[in-house]
Design a protein around this nucleic acid. Structure first.
Length: 284
DNA sequence: GCCACTGTTAGCAT
DNA sequence: CATGCTAACAGTGG
């Protein structure tokens, strides 16, 4: 679920709806999500204004007026949703950020105070805070590879030129390149006509260039569609994305390839289901 | 009921 | 060092 396009959709939603809002306090329902002393986290966050929202890889960064930043990762099933403070809690709501009423600026239908809730069925997500000025020292961010949406074609080719192993495993590795996950890797490899278990050192610079282009194209289209909603994903207004309707291979085992009609195959690579067209994506 | 599977990744083993 | 499994969790489907 939350890969780069989904996280970007959440970030854009937050930017539109909560920048400038002043946080009243934070309620932690399930402490396991907060990877920091709960009291400390609450103290750092409460009574501060949200001044900026950013994304790095699949991480969400929320900058506060006191020089601190909230770092959130959605794991597999995490979601932020903006709701009326009076609305009933949902199953798997783990954390609530409450805003002051007079700073609410949502739609007119949104009278009264609102709050941002973090929901996560599988509890793989995590949230913590750090000093904005110390960002370059934060391990979670430091280890990330270049942004898959920013990297230039030549840097991308250089990045993989020296690598071994299977192309899909490398694309999933956030330390090599940040933001891609299982869905967008499969879709990008199909677009570039590259077999997911293709050995990287057998790829030509031309193929890598094509793969770079495919990634840019797929990610941009997915962001435009508000991401892919397979089961659990929705944006901060509770709306689902629509890119799943444009998937050409992911989740389409046994169905006809949209390009050539051959049946889409599914194999396991690094323990992850990998969908591809055996005719369009030949291994070399 | 049991087992396999699911969008991620830290941590450990090889 | 690079690469590959497993576990963390909850739910669903066969």
């Amino acid at each position: 679920m939350p890969e780069l396009p989904e996280v970007e959709t959440v970030v854009r939603g937050l930017r539109k709806s909560v920048i400038g809002n002043k946080i009243k306090d934070v309620k932690i329902i399930f402490p396991g999500i907060v990877k920091q002393n709960s009291k400390n986290f609450k103290k750092v966050v409460s009574k501060n204004k949200i001044i900026e929202i950013r994304r790095r890889g699949k991480f969400i960064l929320i900058d506060l007026s006191n020089g601190k930043t909230i770092l959130a990762h959605l794991g597999m099933t995490g979601n932020f949703i903006l709701v009326r403070a009076s609305s009933p809690l949902n199953k798997h709501d783990h954390l609530i950020v409450r805003f002051y009423e007079n700073h609410s600026k949502g739609s007119p239908a949104f009278g009264g105070a609102k709050e941002l809730r973090y929901n996560d069925q599988r509890k793989f997500g995590r949230i913590k805070s750090f000093s904005t000025s110390k960002e370059e020292n934060i391990f979670d961010l430091k280890k990330l590879g270049p942004e898959s949406l920013n990297i230039s074609s030549s840097d991308f080719v250089d990045l993989f030129k020296k690598r071994k192993g299977r192309i899909k495993s490398a694309l999933l590795n956030q330390q090599i390149i940040a933001g891609l996950g299982n869905i967008y890797v499969d879709e990008s490899l199909f677009e570039a006509k590259i077999h997911p278990s293709q050995k990287i050192d057998q790829l030509t610079p031309q193929q890598l260039k094509k793969l770079h282009q495919a990634i840019q194209k797929i990610l941009k289209k997915a962001i435009k569609a508000g991401g892919s909603s397979i089961e659990n994903y929705y944006n901060i207004d509770g709306e689902i994305g629509s890119f799943q309707l444009q998937h050409k291979v992911y989740g389409r085992e046994g169905l006809a390839c949209k390009r050539c009609g051959t049946k889409i195959k599914r194999i396991k690579i690094s323990q992850r289901s990998s969908y591809f067209c055996p005719r369009c994506q030949k291994r070399t």
